[in-house]
Design a protein around this nucleic acid. Structure first.
Lengths: 191, 191
DNA sequence: GCAATATATTTGACATCTAAAGTGTTTAAA
DNA sequence: TTTAAACACTTTAGATGTCAAATATATTGC
């Protein structure tokens, strides 16, 4: 594309300029490939681990990963959380949270309570049964993770944690700079 | 918990013994926490990136991530792939591949051909339209990934790629050592 | 040959997921 | 005060995802 024409032009320039262009091209090509390779490997590892956890949660506890994740969020905040907040923390859509909460409520593991002061909102909490059940699963879950991450030394794990932090920070920064699309490209028209 | 009582007890011991105990406990506690933190951060980054890609694929190309992934696998192997092979490479179940392939076939982007020599199997291929469409998307996709991974330098990316390789290798090793459950714990009984 | 077993895909029942539309509540501005 | 916008949640439609059972074909061992 642009690089091709630049290369063609610089054939008429000095050798030094030429080399610079070639360097840039090589770097660009390698760099691209690298980011993509990184992403694919990241994805691959995540999916593998997720699949293992998913399978074990089913086999040992007859539950699913999304339910476990939702309960994990609830356990961390003693007072319970609103659907809204759960949606943000789990990084899934609101409709999804509604569905999973329905399931867990049916199983008697969480409860929906009207939120005092805001009749739109619900507070979702772990029931006593839910808390007990979750603690059992969480203990096993942590062992699984330690086992699955066993390929890395403590130092390597630390390195990766901080590098992933950079990735996360960069993505968030980019998001706020770009400004999230308002999801309403046309002037909103009621009904 | 355990750390509290151990600490109390070791107040009566020698200073050296005390330190050893504290060290071990600190390491254990930190170590556990570390693996879990690593996993949560890994997951968080992956989900964030996935969500961005998903959104952009929809907005710019009116397609979805699974369809894009399936097409990406097909583009890499000129001769097409069998459902089986797609399932393995995408790390999803066979039933799932059937569904996505159905969709793409309906859209005219892939085709199912009887597999010569094995009447059980199908070969899935990109159609001409499919290939063209995919190439457009892939170019954009790569730019997105480069942008999203921009928080890491080339060296950092390289480090992470090799560390992720270790994770992957460890998981596979563990899997083969443990022996995948045959999914048939009772002697198989036909029907 | 033929039965037992293995492989490739589909199907069915369900659980997640998203995006978008719908319902009711709150807020804030006119 | 009225009313429009923002907000919290649910509902809907459609796509993915799982596992397990069902089909159909291949392969193997006797």
């Amino acid at each position: 594309m642009a690089s091709t024409s630049t290369l063609r032009k610089s054939n008429h320039g000095s050798r030094r300029a030429n080399n610079i262009v070639l360097d840039l091209e090589t770097r660009a090509q390698k760099g691209d490939h690298q980011a993509l390779r990184l992403w694919l490997r990241l994805l691959s590892c995540t999916v593998r681990i997720e699949n293992k956890i998913r399978l074990r949660l089913r086999r040992e506890f007859g539950t699913t990963l999304p339910r476990f994740d939702l309960m994990a969020q609830l356990e961390r905040s003693a007072g319970g959380l609103r659907m809204n907040e759960l949606s943000k923390r789990l990084m899934v859509s609101g409709g999804n949270v509604t569905g999973i909460t329905d399931q867990l409520e049916r199983e008697g593991l969480v409860s929906r309570t009207a939120c005092p002061g805001d009749r739109r909102a619900f507070t979702v909490k772990l029931t006593d049964t839910g808390l007990k059940r979750f603690r059992e699963m969480a203990a096993r879950h942590e062992l699984w993770i330690i086992e699955l991450m066993g390929g890395l030394s403590r130092d390597e794990q630390e390195t990766m944690i901080s590098e992933l932090w950079k990735v996360k920070a960069h993505i968030n920064r980019a998001a706020s700079l770009a400004g999230k699309p308002t999801q309403r490209l046309q002037p909103g028209r009621s009904r």
